[in-house]
């Protein structure tokens, strides 16, 4: 299963990155959000660390919705979904493969968003970096597990992006709170509790939704037309 999973991930990555506008739409939307929020600062004043962290995660979530829409839209033309279903890969491998592809793309986008936060919102990095990286990876894992599970839900619907957003955003709340909580500490808003509690939440979220995705994805994807 692992080999097939990686094959699916590689296929999606190469289709997204080397064809058409690839990741551009998602990246531009994220950067625009940073720019628009930079307008909320008065002259000589910076956004508070917590607001900056919230903007960062807001951009990431929008970006993630677009990424998964695009990943699942790849199979919409010419009924290629059937081709993927007929391949020898077990259906959960499709879920995991797309989650991995989405994870890499999201991480890549966030690498750009971080400097954007520094430039547009006037933030600087304080605090210990290892927990920050850990929470980033954990939150991204959860976002991709859930995004990959629900990405297929709006197949063939008009206004897929907004539909996916309204279902996905509230479900992601615990992760967003965790990301913002730790992000605020990194941007220089220390808290006595430290990142420990948030780490626990993110781990629990990941565990629950990785298991859910593994169990339930085949219902959404292979479901009768």
């Amino acid at each position: 299963m692992l080999r097939l999973t990686l094959a699916v991930a590689r296929k999606d990555l190469s289709l997204t990155l080397w064809r058409g506008n690839g990741l551009m739409q998602a990246l531009l939307l994220g950067l625009l959000i940073f720019f628009v929020f930079s307008l909320s600062q008065e002259v000589g004043e910076n956004l508070s660390p917590q607001s900056a962290a919230a903007v960062f995660w807001l951009s990431s979530t929008f970006c993630q919705v677009l990424i998964f829409n695009q990943l699942y839209a790849l199979e919409e033309v010419n009924n290629s979904r059937l081709g993927l279903l007929l391949s020898p890969a077990p259906i959960p491998a499709v879920w995991l493969g797309k989650a991995i592809a989405g994870f890499i793309l999201l991480l890549f986008a966030q690498l750009l968003f971080l400097p954007a936060a520094v430039v547009f919102l006037g933030q600087s990095l304080h605090g210990p970096l290892p927990p920050a990286v850990a929470i980033l990876l954990l939150a991204d894992t959860g976002m991709c597990a859930l995004g990959s599970l629900l990405g297929a839900l709006a197949q063939g619907q008009a206004a897929r992006e907004s539909l996916l957003s309204i279902v996905l955003f509230p479900l992601l709340t615990p992760l967003l709170l965790a990301g913002i909580g730790v992000g605020a500490q990194i941007f220089g808003n220390p808290s006595p509790n430290g990142p420990g509690a948030w780490m626990g939440i993110a781990c629990a979220f990941d565990a629950i939704f990785l298991a859910t995705g593994l169990l339930l994805f085949s219902f959404i994807y292979a479901g009768e037309e």
């Binding site: 599970l149 629900l150 479900l171 709340t173 615990p174 339930l216 219902f219 009768e224």
Partner: peptide
């Protein structure tokens, strides 16, 4: 119905 069932489960787990 299938999609809604999956969302219904994920929602309550959340």
């Amino acid at each position: 119905s299938l999609v809604c069932a999956v969302v219904g489960i994920a929602a309550f787990l959340d």
